[in-house]
Computed example of a mutant assay.
Amino acid sequence: MKVDQFETANLSVRPDWSAYATAYDLLSEHNPEYQALLQGFEAFLTTIEMPRLIYDIGGGTGNYTEIAARACPNSEVCLVEPDAGMLAAARSKLATFRNIKYDSSTLEDFDAPEAADLVICVHSLYAMPGQEQRLGDLRRLLRPGGLLYLIDLGRYMNVTDWRSYLFSNLKKELGLAGALRVFWQGREIAKQNNAILKAQKKGVYWTHTEAEIALAVAAAGFEILKQEPVYRGYSDLLICRATP
């Protein structure tokens, strides 16, 4: 297979992130595991010195950017998101904040004006090309001693398992009719999650064990301060310090 044919084949199994953006926040609001991730990040911010500059890489619809901008009102926060649909959703949702800037670059093309005190990268590294190089890019964005807050999807996205989990929680929260309504409104999520799984199985998206991501992060120039499995064991959380 020629290189251009290979790239076309890879693109054919990638999810449509703009389509994903249309229902992403709807289901996220009703996902206890996702809400726990947000709460964990907010708690983390209370434990560190106030950052002057924060980059949210692959920030999607801006949920982590929003927490950072609210919790750190004197900080400058830059949301970096290459997908037009995701970025438009973020701009609309975060329009009232005055300490947020936006950039539509990919991580490898992001021309950072200066080194940051904190870089956030949540559920986006696995979908980027060349994770070793991208971890190096994340290190490049940080001053020595700066912090990386990294959450990455490492295991196969078991769509059936997640649908069962979410529907069970929705029924408890909203009743059967409410659960069915939300699932219908968020049906695009299931479609795009299936595309993520397909991309993982074809090796287009990165999958890893806890040990593998720890080795990759350390090799990129980070000291791991904390690591734990999150998101029902599908993802890994790493809090890291950039070494000199």
Rank of each mutant, 00 (worst) to 15 (best):
R134Y: 02
Y20D: 03
K2L: 13
I213R: 03
E188C: 11
R241K: 12
W17E: 05
I54M: 06
C72P: 06
G186H: 07
P73N: 03
K191M: 11
A36W: 05
I100Q: 08
M128V: 04
E33V: 14
W206N: 08
T160L: 06
Q5R: 13
K171V: 15
Q35D: 05
S75N: 11
A190E: 13
F183M: 15
E33H: 11
I48H: 12
A179W: 14
T243L: 14
Y64F: 15
R232Q: 13
K2V: 10
V204T: 13
F44H: 11
A89Y: 04
P129H: 01
G58Y: 03
C72W: 03
G58Q: 08
T209Q: 03
S164N: 14
P82W: 07
I100P: 04
S18C: 03
S168D: 14
Y102T: 04
L150S: 01
H30Y: 13
E76A: 11
E114W: 02
Q192S: 10
D161R: 14
P129T: 11
S168Y: 08
T207M: 12
D161W: 11
T160W: 02
R181T: 10
Q39D: 15
A68L: 03
Q200V: 12
G178F: 09
R134W: 02
S168L: 09
T160F: 01
V3I: 12
E42F: 01
F183G: 05
E33K: 14
A177M: 04
D236F: 09
S28W: 06
L147T: 14
G130I: 05
L176A: 12
N194G: 15
K226T: 05
V217M: 00
Q131M: 09
K226A: 07
Y234T: 13
A220C: 07
M86P: 06
A127S: 14
F44D: 02
R140Q: 01
R232H: 04
L166P: 01
G233W: 08
P15I: 02
A220F: 00
P144E: 07
E188Y: 13
L141E: 03
C240P: 01
A43I: 02
V159N: 06
G40E: 06
N99F: 10
A84P: 01
K198L: 13
S105K: 03
T243C: 11
T207A: 02
L197Q: 11
L107G: 04
L141A: 09
C121A: 11
V80L: 13
A127N: 08
F110P: 06
N74A: 10
K2R: 12
V77T: 12
T65G: 10
D83N: 15
R241T: 00
G60A: 10
A84W: 01
T96R: 09
F97I: 08
L237F: 12
A71Y: 02
A115E: 07
G154L: 05
L170M: 09
R163S: 06
S75C: 10
S75W: 06
N74D: 14
A23N: 10
F6V: 14
I224R: 04
T209N: 05
